[in-house]
Design a protein around this nucleic acid. Structure first.
Length: 562
RNA sequence: UGUCCUAUAGUAUAAUGGUAGUACAACUGAUUUUGGUUCAGUUUGUCUAGGUUCGAAUCCUGGUAGGACAACCA
């Protein structure tokens, strides 16, 4: 599989650790989502990394929900996150929750208070912010910083017992900025300025219910959870770099298992946004139908759009992992899903924008059975029978009244092959009062039938079709990029003003070949010459619904633009 | 006007002191009963200025540029 691929920086770190016997060569990672939203493709990168690295080095990965803020979290998200991870093809060693450790983390806090390394502060958020100083100027203690250990112990217990209201008191670490040398990273690190460890929130927690009214902050929960589980490599994104000093400080003061934190650059994708806040806005303001709208970069959205777990995993593999900010071209993801579907998706014929075609020299009531390959890339996929008759429908764009030289399709006097059937020659057409073509008339070459062509004709173009009498109708949803600018999150003004107005085109009455009636939600197909499609969960036997995953590469579209 | 992180084709990613390579994108051409696939080929790159070295994308120094950090979010 990964023969001679060079090591990324995380693999190098791990291999060095193993070589040096760190943790006896044990590798245990974790994927730590907060259950307050749906997973997106950026999370997929983290999932593939954490699970992939552990697997590669004979280790395991825990799924740990970082549920320390009951106000925003919910079991609904827990379920979707678990489903998405498994759909991607990964299985965690243990399903854990930071809230499982609330008792232990509370005891850690008591320990630090006893060491004189934490204190209860009654200041307001504004006062606390002011007390932290600035990166260039060290902070000034609040009046509560000098409380005795006994008083802190008492107050912290009473915080836990619910004697105070939300926001009335917090527990802060006590870190002397003066001990750090002038110009040292620690001295100018704002996260080291007596960071908050606990705050009061009289809120119902999705797992612990009303047992607690104080909750640890990220910095006093994440590293502690890592340590409790014996996580060896705690991999997170770049914005946590300044937290690392604190991460290590708490672990050192507590004298607990030394998990190590490493940071990588999060994934950005062109033509979409990735922040939870922005995605939530798109959902709440109904710019999309929900978290699983096929235009969303969420795992559930990509799934509904027709992307496969393998293509997403391969994508995460190919983009690599680094510490520099990056914006990956979404065309790579599209390339990879085409690459997979080309080998696995059966070909079928569907006409999205039908115009009637009559083969004038074909018998009125004759119906012929034609044989079609299901997938020329996969001989094992076999063949199927499709029905041909005098009256057909073809794609409106496949006929031109006055075709240019390079137009290899149908027009007056032009010959073209009907896929899996006959070569025909365009003869004439009818127009309505608005100038729209209503019916095209053509003649056929009987000896050019697919499979037994003795006509000796050589045509440049092949078009798809359905038989008018046999075709079924279906709804087809054509999805395109959600935004019309590569980096909507960083453009001037509201990112929502860059939403692509044509990101969804619904075709209520496309015509599909009858074999499609057996397709089930999630099935992947190639509509010949039109793209890869999947059956939407909305689909029913009465009204089938297909989502376009991605178009085929279309060199004609480029040529036509010239 | 502090500290930290980063800097290789359009976008990503290799080269770990010794020929700057790969993928996507773009462009040619061949093949093709999908203007798909496949195949062959082309264009485009080491942020900058010094230094070390026989030799620097790589090591050192200074600059420049981009990003992060001062939520009772994670």
């Amino acid at each position: 599989m990964s023969e001679e691929r060079s090591l990324n920086f995380l693999e190098q770190i791990i291999e060095e650790d193993i070589a040096n016997g760190v943790n006896d060569g044990r590798v245990l990672t974790r994927f730590p989502p907060e259950p307050n939203g749906y997973l997106h493709i950026g999370h997929a990168k983290s999932i593939c990394l954490n699970f992939g690295l552990a697997k590669k080095y004979g280790g395991q990965t825990n799924l740990r929900f970082d549920d320390t803020n009951p106000v925003t979290e919910d079991t609904e998200y827990v379920e979707s996150i678990k489903a998405d991870i498994q759909w991607l093809g990964f299985q965690w060693a243990q399903e854990l929750y930071a809230s499982d450790y609330f008792e232990q983390i509370y005891n850690f806090a008591v320990q630090l208070i006893k060491k004189g390394l934490a204190y209860v502060d009654d200041s307001t958020p504004e006062e606390i912010a002011a007390s932290k100083g600035t990166p260039t100027q060290i902070g000034t203690p609040t009046p509560y910083r000098s409380r005795s250990i006994e008083e802190n112990l008492d107050l912290f217990e009473r915080m836990k017992n619910g004697e105070f209201k939300d926001g009335e008191k917090v527990l802060r670490a006590k870190i002397e900025t003066e001990q750090f040398e002038e110009g040292s990273p620690e001295r100018s690190n704002m996260h080291m300025r007596d960071p908050l460890m606990y705050r009061i929130k009289h809120a119902h927690h999705h797992r612990t219910g009303d047992k607690w009214c104080i909750y640890p902050m990220y910095d006093f929960a994440h590293g502690q959870s890592d340590s409790i589980e014996g996580i060896t490599h705690s991999i997170c994104t770049l914005e946590f770099i300044p937290h690392r000093a604190l991460y290590n400080w708490f672990i050192a003061q507590l004298g607990i298992f030394p998990s190590r934190q490493y940071e990588f650059a999060r994934l950005n994708l062109t033509y979409t946004v990735m922040s939870k806040r922005k995605l939530l806005q798109l959902v709440n303001e109904k710019h999309v139908s929900g978290w699983d709208d096929p235009r969303m970069p969420t795992i559930s959205g990509l799934r509904r759009r027709g992307f496969t777990p393998a293509s997403i995993r391969e994508f995460c593999e190919r983009i690599g992992v680094q510490k520099r900010e990056n914006v990956i071209d979404v065309s790579l993801l599209e390339f990879l899903v085409r690459d997979e579907l080309n080998k696995t998706a059966n070909r079928v014929m569907a006409v999205l924008d039908p115009v009637k075609l009559v083969i004038t020299d074909y018998p009125d009531d004759k119906v012929e059975e034609m044989t079609a390959d299901n997938n020329p890339e996969d001989p094992a996929s076999g063949t199927r029978t499709i029905l041909f008759s005098k009256t057909l429908y073809i794609e409106r764009e496949d006929f031109m009244e006055e075709p240019p030289k390079k137009f290899f399709r149908l027009g007056p006097g032009l010959v073209v092959r009907l896929k899996n059937a006959y070569i025909i020659k365009g003869e004439s057409f009818d127009k309505d009062e608005n100038g729209n073509i209503t019916t095209i008339y053509a003649t056929h070459y009987p000896e050019s039938k697919s499979g037994g062509d003795t006509s000796g004709l050589n045509v440049k173009g092949t078009i798809h079709w359905v038989s008018a009498a046999h075709a079924k109708t279906a709804e087809v949803r054509l999805y395109d990029r959600l935004f019309n600018t590569p980096d909507p999150g960083n453009e001037e003004g509201d990112f929502k003003s860059y939403i692509n107005p044509d990101s969804l085109t619904v075709i209520p009455n496309a015509l599909i070949e009858p074999s499609l009636v057996d397709a089930k939600p999630g099935d992947k197909l190639q509509f010949l010459r039109k793209g890869y499609f999947t059956v939407d969960p909305d689909s029913t036997a009465e009204k089938m619904v297909f989502n376009r995953t991605v178009t085929l590469k279309d060199t004609w579209a480029k040529e036509a633009k010239k």
